[in-house]
């Protein structure tokens, strides 16, 4: 997917209450790329400038699994804390 597609997808997920500006996505994509979690290639586009397509790397997939674990723990902790309150 290229940057604009990812931004649109995130917007679709967040619905009306968009939690971030699309412009903030690009520096994050670049940071993920420079740390080896994403790979990218530029391909020509029929309508407009060439586009940079991003793809998750093997290292990125491994890190994603770790992040998902951390997120589950965090979510269960917050859920428990709210119920207890």
């Amino acid at each position: 997917m290229y940057g604009y597609q990812i931004a649109k997808l995130l917007d679709d997920y967040s619905g009306e209450a968009s939690f971030m500006k699309q412009g903030a996505l690009y520096p994050v994509l670049r940071q993920l790329e420079s740390s080896g979690l994403l790979g990218s290639k530029v391909e020509p586009s029929v309508s407009g400038p060439p586009r940079r397509y991003y793809e998750i790397t093997a290292e990125g997939k491994e890190t994603l699994v770790v992040w998902q674990g951390v997120w589950k723990q965090m979510k269960s902790f917050v859920d428990k804390a709210i119920k207890g309150a």
């Binding site: 290229y2 604009y4 520096p27 670049r30 586009s45 407009g48 400038p49 586009r51 940079r52």
Partner: peptide
């Protein structure tokens, strides 16, 4: 240079769309 390139890519793609 990176920020200008990203912004241009996005704005042109979004505008065309």
């Amino acid at each position: 240079q990176d920020a200008l390139s990203d912004a241009e890519d996005h704005l042109r793609a979004a505008l065309a769309n």
